[in-house]
Write a protein that binds this DNA or RNA. Structure first.
Lengths: 165, 165
DNA sequence: TATTGTTATACTCTATAACTATA
DNA sequence: TATAGTTATAGAGTATAACAATA
């Protein structure tokens, strides 16, 4: 049996009933995933803004990747991020303009750039990481440690299932 | 104790080790959520493209909302979608150009548009819904029914936790 | 005065295609 | 020839600010 959905679209059609009927949407994994992601993104932005820092989740991921794989090329980074190499260019331009990372010429292959964090970039990343932990704590605040672990595991299964196309 | 991370960045620095060290990223809920969402989005697109249909998850959600709440205004819809009213305009333009929905003048309030699906839009939405179910089945293919239900519940908790700013 | 929808404008993210320099 | 990075370009999603019509 179905649970009772919007009993009626409300009475007097005055100003509308504030709560919309979302139909099947709340039963769809993709929809709920998108909504959660959107809220998490907003929380990330608010956390950083509140600390006077400016960074997107994507930029944070990029910085971690460069920090942990110093000297990697733009192609390798683009592949790891799942974006086109041309998409990466303006992103790196911006981070480089902020003095967070640099493009060095590779000594072994003149076509590639060896990416690395600047000293300032490494220092900033440490601060960013602290902010991310605060953010993570909040988005998981209604979950137990076990639930958070389970959620991460389930998300990985979803990703793996979606991939198989 | 920490689990063993990337034992080493590999030997001969020839072409790089194919697998990057992602550091703390795989332990971050926000990161895993974003990755899953990205894969799900790609699966959605592939499912529709494979059926010769063209629609984004956001457009699907919008159509369902209009279908279930015929006559709602653009402001109400924008609020439900969590976007600015100005953002909604070109989206509606596109769907209207595809003859999926129409903007009617509200008889009771000359400022608002009463949105509704066209007959063609209602018919298309039925087809889209079938495709979404196929898509949903695949992204949840590695999860049991219980796990899918649990995942949806956990995602809702994340969303609720993130919101409280 | 306040609200709704629109327009103008501006970013960011995304991609494809073509160019360059190197291999 | 093939690969890496860049540029030019275009489309979609997002926002803010200002405007016209209506309440």
């Amino acid at each position: 049996m179905d649970r009772p959905l919007a009993k009626s679209l409300a009475g007097t059609s005055t100003t509308s009933s504030k709560v919309l009927d979302r139909g099947i949407l709340p039963t769809l994994l993709g929809y709920m995933l998108r909504r959660a992601q959107s809220a998490v993104f907003a929380d990330f932005a608010a956390t950083f803004q509140g600390a006077g820092a400016s960074l997107t989740p994507g930029e944070f991921g990029l910085l971690v990747l460069v920090a942990r794989n110093t000297g990697l090329s733009q192609m390798a980074l683009a592949r790891a991020l799942g974006i086109d190499r041309s998409t990466l260019v303006p992103i790196l331009d911006r981070l480089q303009a902020r003095d967070l990372l640099v493009r060095r010429r590779s000594p072994t292959d003149g076509r590639t750039h060896a990416l690395e964090l600047t000293p300032a970039g490494a220092k900033e990343l440490a601060r960013f990481t602290t902010l991310v932990r605060v953010h993570e704590k909040r988005i998981a605040s209604r979950l137990s440690t076990a639930e958070t672990q389970m959620l991460i595991g389930l998300l990985e299964k979803v990703r793996a299932g979606a991939r198989s196309l």
